[in-house]
Structure formats: structure tokens, C-alpha cells
């Protein structure tokens, strides 16, 4: 993966130059892409890794990996606009209508890059179909998330499979498909487990981070808050009152320390951590079951750490 960053960056810049032809649009697009270049680019790396695992050769995969990263970037931008989150990011320094336009451009560009990659038409068609389908799945999950339309853990897991895990599945499966021409259900299964574990970890963080968007203040139904609401005592019923809007933020804002204590004492953090680790262990087990060379197994596992 030594050349990964260099080759991905080249694909980003070349393709934005080709398709973001209005000068101001190109600059704005590059500003967003540069945020991505500062990150780990896990999704693109998974695409390349799966291509190599299934004996794909050549550097054409880096365009596909860059396409996957632009897909994720565009959806991240849209998510931040919807949640009014991550205010420090480049796209939040733009007017929201401009940022949305850039995101639409990046999302469409991701498809275009995949369709114009050097692989056989049949394989690019299959990969593009997977990308579209997984994006649509993620959008469905995002709809549920935005509506906070979750009443139990089953609803939550369904939403997470759609909203988050679908994109990890896309990254792994696009690399796999481009190498083999075939969908691999085992890859789908472990990518999904990793996606669920990652989202649960995010949700723990969003409950404990009081400085930025906080799922408790926002009355967000996630795995930890669902457990919390089922585990509180009679004396703690004000928490349910808050979630059901019988109390307002100003009524409970001063009780932050008490909330932290309740999160600990009810076992909310313990339960959610165990659930997260369970999905991670499922992921490890499924990766090992694929029977690939230990070199590749180690690479896949290392990417998730």
C-alpha cells in the first residue's frame, strides 16, 4: 500500500480537473478532497486490498478506490449538512447550498470514475451497480436515522446495516468484484460486522462527547440510549421524561455529571462495549473463515485497528 496515497491523490486531482470545470467549483472540490487526504482512507484501502487478495493486478484499482473514497466523502458532507455537525470541516466553511452542490458533484464523479476505469465492461457495470445499490441502501438507513424512527434494538441494527455497514460492504465488494467478476457473500458478511462494530463505537463516542453533538441532549435513539431507557430506575425516570419531551434541555442540562454516573451504573457503557466487541469478534472469525493466506488476513485485520 506504499503508493496508495500518491496514486489516490493523483486520481482525485486528475478527475476533479476533468469534471469540475467551473474554476470556483474545482477549488471548492479540492478543499473537500484535501480533508479526505488527511484521513486514513480506510474505504479505499479496503477496495485495493480486496482486489489484491483475489489476485487482481495492475494499478487500475486505484481509480476504483478513489471513486469509493469520493462516494464516502460526498455522503459524509451531506451527513454533516443534515446533522449540522463537524463545523471545522472545509465544507462547513462554504454556504450549505454550495457544499451540497459539491457533494452532488463528488457523488456523481465517483460513479463516473468507476464507469471509466480500465476494467472489462461487464465488471465495471457490476461494480457500479454495487456502488449504486449500496448508496441507496445507505440513504434508506440515513432516512431512518434522521427521523430517529427507532424503537428497539432490532430497528437500530437494521438502520446501522443500511446506513453504515452498506458503505463498508461497497468498498470491500467493489475490489472483490473487479478482481473476480463475482459477488462474495463471505466478504459481505464480515464487512457488515465491521460496519456495525464501527457504528456502535461512534454511538458510544457521541454519547460521551458533551462538547459537540451529543446523542443524549439530542434524544437520539441508539444502542446505548435504548439500553439506558430500559435500565433506569424509578428515581431516574426523568431521563425518560426528557427523551419523551416532557422535560426540556434547560431542565436537565445541569445534570450532566449525574447522567455520566447513570450511564456507568446502569451498565450502559459496559453493555454497548460488549455488543461492539461481539460484532468485532464476529468480523475476525468471518475473516479467518475465508481461508486466505495469513498475510492477507493480517492486512485486513490491521486495517480495522
Amino acid at each position: 500500500m506504499d503508493d496508495f496515497e500518491r496514486l489516490i491523490e493523483k486520481e482525485f486531482r486528475d478527475n476533479l480537473q476533468a469534471y469540475f470545470i467551473v474554476p470556483h467549483m474545482y477549488e471548492l472540490g479540492i478543499a473537500c478532497v484535501e480533508e479526505k487526504l488527511r484521513e486514513s482512507m480506510l474505504f479505499g484501502k479496503l477496495t485495493v486490498l480486496h482486489y489484491r487478495i483475489f489476485e487482481g493486478t495492475g494499478d487500475g484499482i486505484f481509480r476504483a478506490a478513489a471513486a469509493v473514497e469520493l462516494m464516502v466523502l460526498s455522503l459524509d458532507i451531506i451527513d454533516d449538512l443534515q446533522d449540522k455537525d463537524n463545523k471545522g470541516m472545509a465544507w462547513n466553511q462554504m454556504a450549505p447550498e454550495i457544499a451540497l452542490n459539491i457533494a452532488l458533484g463528488l457523488l456523481t464523479l465517483s460513479q463516473q470514475m468507476l464507469l471509466t476505469s480500465e476494467f472489462a465492461l461487464e465488471r465495471t457495470h457490476e461494480a457500479a451497480q454495487v456502488m449504486s445499490k449500496q448508496i441507496l441502501t445507505a440513504i434508506n438507513g440515513q432516512t431512518t436515522d434522521l427521523q430517529n424512527d427507532i424503537t428497539n434494538e432490532e430497528d437500530y441494527l437494521c438502520m446501522v446495516r443500511q446506513k453504515s455497514a452498506a458503505l463498508l460492504v461497497a468498498a470491500c465488494m467493489i475490489g472483490t468484484l473487479l478482481a473476480t467478476g463475482e459477488w462474495n457473500a463471505q466478504v459481505r458478511d464480515y464487512a457488515e460486522e465491521l460496519g456495525i462494530a464501527a457504528q456502535i463505537k461512534n454511538d458510544i463516542g457521541d454519547l460521551l462527547n458533551w462538547e459537540n453533538k451529543n446523542d443524549f441532549w439530542n434524544r437520539k435513539k441508539t444502542l446505548p440510549t435504548l439500553y439506558l431507557l430500559e435500565s433506569i430506575s424509578e428515581e431516574e425516570s426523568w431521563i425518560l421524561d426528557y427523551f419523551e419531551k416532557r422535560l426540556q434541555l434547560e431542565d436537565v442540562f445541569h445534570r450532566r455529571e449525574e447522567i455520566e454516573k447513570i450511564l456507568e451504573q446502569t451498565g450502559t457503557l459496559l453493555y454497548t462495549s460488549v455488543r461492539m466487541r461481539t460484532h468485532y469478534y464476529n468480523y475476525l472469525e468471518l475473516v479467518n473463515k475465508l481461508g486466505m493466506d495469513s498475510y492477507w488476513t493480517d492486512q485486513i485485520i490491521a486495517l480495522a485497528e
Binding site: A197, K201, I204, L208, E264, Q265, G267, L269, L270, T272, S273, M276, R277, Y280, A304, E305
Partner: peptide, 10 residues
């Protein structure tokens, strides 16, 4: 006794 480690490394 009651403290839990909530950050699993993965």
C-alpha cells in the same frame, strides 16, 4: 469494581 472499560480497541 463497577468501572467498565468502554473503549474496545479494534
Amino acid at each position: 469494581v463497577m468501572k467498565s472499560m468502554f473503549w474496545a480497541k479494534f
